[in-house]
């Protein structure tokens, strides 16, 4: 059925092309058989609007035909999907990652609650206790005062209250997701730097 329609369309198309070639190369011969000038004077070809309508309809029709007919017909086996659905396996620190994602999404939705900050505060205090050999209360106080690292982003994130500068608060409003991720990254890096520095000093 489709094949016959296709063949008919092809035949009509080929005939039209042959006619066009005949008109180009031997207009006289074709003109004696067909009323060429009468066809040219018909509204479909002489008036601009008619020409647009007639040819536009044929063109759009062809586009639709092509769009309908196109498709993949590879007879071979299909390729396995690129990424196998990742197993929902627990990975080390996966719960904290979940907390980070929850906090990021909360920030994107305009909510302020932050589940990561208390955990990182406790981590920074632990690291400080180890590195500076101070007691936990002192370490905790220094973290809350922002006096434990040179990194201003990490210090401000763990510091008590909303002591962040206007610029920083504005950044958090404008780019909520990125700001949370950056703060967490910088803070973890600052804690890692504390330990690295101590290791280097001891190595010396």
């Amino acid at each position: 059925m489709i094949d016959r329609r296709r063949r008919l369309g092809g035949a009509v198309g080929a005939a039209a092309v042959v006619l066009a070639a005949g008109l180009f190369f031997a207009p006289g011969a074709v003109g004696s058989v067909l009323p060429v000038s009468a066809v040219a004077r018909s509204t479909a070809l002489s008036a601009a609007a008619g020409r647009v309508l007639a040819l536009g309809c044929v063109g759009v029709g062809c586009l639709l035909w092509i769009a309908r007919a196109s498709g993949d017909e590879d007879p071979g086996p299909t390729l396995p999907p690129l990424s196998a659905p990742e197993a929902d396996e627990p990975v080390v620190g996966g719960d904290l990652d979940g907390d980070v994602e929850a906090t990021v999404e909360a920030a994107a939705a305009g909510a302020g609650h932050d589940e990561v900050r208390p955990e990182l505060r406790s981590l920074a205090a632990d690291a400080l206790v180890h590195v500076d050999d101070c007691d936990r209360t002192t370490a905790r106080r220094r973290v809350e005062a922002g006096e434990w690292t040179d990194d201003p982003v990490a210090a401000a994130y763990l510091a008590d209250g909303s002591t962040g500068s206007l610029r920083r608060r504005l950044a958090a409003r404008l780019r909520p997701r990125r700001t949370i991720r950056r703060r967490v990254d910088r803070t973890v890096a600052a804690v890692e730097a504390l330990l690295d520095e101590q290791e280097r000093e001891r190595g010396r």
């Binding site: 296709r6 063949r7 198309g13 039209a16 092309v17 042959v18 006619l19 040819l55 044929v58 092509i66």
Partner: peptide, 13 residues
């Protein structure tokens, strides 16, 4: 015009 219509039909076919 004939060339246009003809080629279009051929293409689609």
């Amino acid at each position: 015009a004939a060339a246009a219509v003809g080629t279009l039909l051929l293409l689609a076919a």
